[in-house]
Nucleic acid binder design. Sequence first.
DNA 1: GAAACATTTTAGATCGATCTAAGTGACGTG
DNA 2: CACGTCACTTAGATCGATCTAAAATGTTTC
Lengths: 340, 340
Amino acid sequence: MSSEERKKTRVTLLDVARHANVSRATASLVLRKSPLVGSETRMRVEEAMRDLGYVYNIGAARLRVERSQIIGAIVPNLTNPFFAELLSGIEEIIGATGKVVILAKSGDRVEQQEMLLRRMREHGVDGVILCPAAHTESTLSEQITAWDMPVVQVLRHISFDMDYVGADYATGMRQAVDYLASLGHERIAFAVHGPVHSAYQERVDGFRDAMLSRGLDPSILIRFPTQLGEIAKATHLLFDRAIRPTAVICFNHLVALGLSAGLQDCGLTIGRDLSLIGFDDVADAEAIRPRLTSVSTGPVAIGEMAARLLVERIADPALPPRRLVNDTTLHIRQSCGRPN
Amino acid sequence: MSSEERKKTRVTLLDVARHANVSRATASLVLRKSPLVGSETRMRVEEAMRDLGYVYNIGAARLRVERSQIIGAIVPNLTNPFFAELLSGIEEIIGATGKVVILAKSGDRVEQQEMLLRRMREHGVDGVILCPAAHTESTLSEQITAWDMPVVQVLRHISFDMDYVGADYATGMRQAVDYLASLGHERIAFAVHGPVHSAYQERVDGFRDAMLSRGLDPSILIRFPTQLGEIAKATHLLFDRAIRPTAVICFNHLVALGLSAGLQDCGLTIGRDLSLIGFDDVADAEAIRPRLTSVSTGPVAIGEMAARLLVERIADPALPPRRLVNDTTLHIRQSCGRPN
DNA sequence: GAAACATTTTAGATCGATCTAAGTGACGTG
DNA sequence: CACGTCACTTAGATCGATCTAAAATGTTTC
């Protein structure tokens, strides 16, 4: 009993081998489904594994072979459903390839992100899917290549030397602007918030380009607070300017939800008094009434694409860097009408 | 150059030791901040680490010492913001202790969950935070103790032999029922959905008890579809019965969002024509108008509690199993009024 | 100057897998 | 019957850390 208890040691491949009357090497071959072992032997070993309740020790294997079967995912934030959906896509694909994903949030803080990258290297991850924290220096990319660690950037990019998967923000913006323009809107505001990063810049640029190409004034950029509750309270910012917009495009789903609530709080009717277009269309946004016309960027699909890209990158590190942008779709619902 | 290239081997502790003119053992002691090494030596070694860009290899260390610094988290689903917030709490605490979390979703499928548990064992996780898939057999708990793997159950429980952290669903239900009753409601429905599990049962039981103790009919249980969009479309189920409820308590935030949307689609005014109480109050629910009166269960806090419990459990596996329930709070907002 | 002691340092075994290179038999062939 | 082939099987080194037990060094004491 006491000797049983002290012998808390896990079942090892050697135990299996002994139990099956073969060598450690043969047992290892069975484990890796090598065609070299005879079928009778194979069966005996597999039975031994079952009998002893053997569990493969990836950590030990990894020491020899250069593959940990772990990949990392670093996102700014998890409470934002947009990133949660992204992660869901990542986990789906990575899990299907038999790997496992280590999750971490940077809080959009560069030092935290640095710490996480180091921690992941310590764990010997095979690669990382990184949504770079705002204000990440582009030199990070050089460090990463120096470490030769496969990395795919998602949603935001800091360098052209690494793979990137994101949404086609420019087209999304154009879809939104075109639609509003087609309804007759001319004074269109872009309601932004959060830190500046590539995706922010692309949306702002996309907005500007789309507006200019229609001959409209692209300068109505209004900056809102970070938190959902605060955004709703700050709705008045829309009306504080000399030129009052007749339509608003929202930076992301948080701004969309916030303004949708805030406008109703002001007693305004969305779609009649003011047109509103959302961005990023996460699942919960379906529940907003009036239904939000919105540009959908497909976070789950982006996560899946990023995961696939990373897997390919790990398989062949020599591949030239690729950039994938997911198409956006304008879902026309009820939050837009003609200007008045 | 070519010899440099082929020497792609990572910097090891032995390299550091040689560079600092000490033995591997000493370098290892420095790494672990042992007080045994002289300060001059320590500095020399630390400098060598910096010079060579040494990265600790946790995997190798783990082979000797029984600690992988990895914990697992298994949830049914990630696109549901409730679980995302839970995860955020978990990551926060685990990350702060220097560990790392492996994330996986079971899709509420028992076989998938089994596969994930095995995979995590293969990775040698120090423990797992598990939200058991619906229909998980309680025998799983025996297996887990046989593996002697520290596990904390969250939100749902299948066994009293393992730690558990959840919300105080019974009290939450009582708060909701009491509040509605105090407004004069007598025909209160409970709108449920999803698979049956302990948390489901606790809510249903809580509802029944609370209703009975007020002398009210506890039998108005209405079952809704799984998807948000479907729920809204199924709103009519509320009115299909002989006795028409004047108030509805929602099983979770999905049902709350769905019905909130569905009722507005029916042209009803929430709070006047029908009172609605939400459950689980996730961040995005703030954007619903009229503002949803809701029982908040605090997923982030639950995640944090679970993580702390797991850390303690890992430190002392002999601890008796504990059960923690997080208090619920009724947030009174605008979705309830007197019956008419 | 030897013994006793404290302070640092180290050689070598070890964890649990994989990989290389070599070793068995059994069988067919010239 | 020696030899090459084929189909398996295996001993032993190896990955990069930790740990034990012992050695080297310096200090004090008698």
